[in-house]
């Protein structure tokens, strides 16, 4: 397939996955702040997931302001709105390649976030309803991919983008929760909301059967191969999808990317053996660096960027 098209499909999937993860986090933390974490630090959320360049730093004084900024702000580089515009722009530039159904699902997503009712819910009414409506749009996207897209190269790049982004988001959210813990009296509650944000709380109660323990949460989030938001699961999926390119790639390009992904899997296995909570503070920056390299090499070898 065209390198430019592969690039756009890849980024379309990344922005969509980023949107989905951020929506889940916002939904979880908003509910937490209503009921349990009454002194929730909205500024920390903005500082972590918003624009951190000093001149663009935004101060918020209420949860509605924070939600408005992260969800609806049109000039904010990292808002859900901007993400969806990017998803749609990428989709637009490959409109002939993706299915008509997929294009329409993204187009509907775009019209949903622009709907004044969405803004009204977030600013004056029940924000959870708005977040649920938006989350449903992202689920429709994944369902449409699954039922309509051919299992060709495009599908592979789409999934590669999706799992790279999911893994990075899991690391970001984990790091954010560690920051919240650092400022809190008790850690336990934040481990719980970490699981909620990754849609993994029910899984945890079923799979681990103990009352919540930090080591087990970390095991689930990083090393559990059955948990679809874990780091090891995402890396495994990246490897699995990438293998499908073996026959359509230039052999030396394929070998290089394959090696990078395999090294990432090896390094996460090494971390697992260390079995310490503190190790995650090294693992996060370490993996991010490897991702940066992977992205850069993919961009050069497969997307034709120099």
């Amino acid at each position: 397939m065209l390198s430019r098209v592969a690039d756009s499909v890849f980024w379309m999937a990344r922005y969509l996955e980023r949107t989905d993860n951020l929506l889940r986090l916002l939904r979880t933390d908003y509910i937490a702040a209503q009921d349990e974490l009454l002194d929730y630090d909205w500024q920390l959320l903005i500082d972590t997931f918003g624009d951190d360049t000093p001149e663009k730093k935004v101060m918020v004084s209420s949860y509605r302001e924070a939600l408005n900024h992260l969800v609806l702000h049109r000039q904010h580089e990292y808002s859900i709105f901007t993400n969806i515009v990017r998803v749609r722009e990428n989709a637009r530039s490959v409109q002939d390649y993706i299915t008509k159904e997929l294009w329409q699902s993204l187009n509907d997503f775009f019209h949903t976030i622009r709907n004044p009712e969405t803004k009204n819910l977030i600013l004056h009414n029940d924000p959870v309803t708005a977040l649920d409506i938006l989350l449903r749009e992202s689920i429709i996207f994944y369902g449409t991919v699954d039922t309509t897209m051919s299992r060709g190269e495009g599908y592979t790049f789409l999934n590669l983008g999706k799992y790279i982004e999911r893994c990075l988001q899991t690391l970001d959210i984990l790091e954010f929760k560690r920051k919240q813990m650092a400022n809190a009296e008790t850690e336990a509650v934040h481990w719980k909301y970490l699981l909620y944000a990754l849609s993994g709380y029910e899984f945890h109660t079923k799979a681990y059967k103990n009352s919540l323990q930090d080591k087990e949460v970390i095991h689930q989030v990083l090393y559990n191969k059955q948990f679809p938001h874990s780091v090891i699961y995402s890396l495994g999926q990246m490897d699995r999808y990438f293998q499908r390119l073996v026959d359509v790639s230039q052999p030396e390009h394929f070998a290089e990317i394959e090696r990078i992904i395999r090294e990432m899997i090896e390094s996460i296995n090494t971390y697992q053996k260390k079995e310490s909570v503190a190790a995650i503070d090294q693992l996060i920056p370490d993996l991010r660096l490897q991702f940066a390299n992977l992205n850069q090499r993919l961009s050069t070898l497969y997307f034709g960027n120099s």
Binding site: L2, S3, R4, Q95, D96, Y97, F157, S249
Partner: peptide, 19 residues
Amino acid sequence: LVEGRDLVVHDFKVYMKTT
């Protein structure tokens, strides 16, 4: 569907840049 930047000419032949 290609854009100009997807195409390149070598030896009087036109090629598209693919993965």
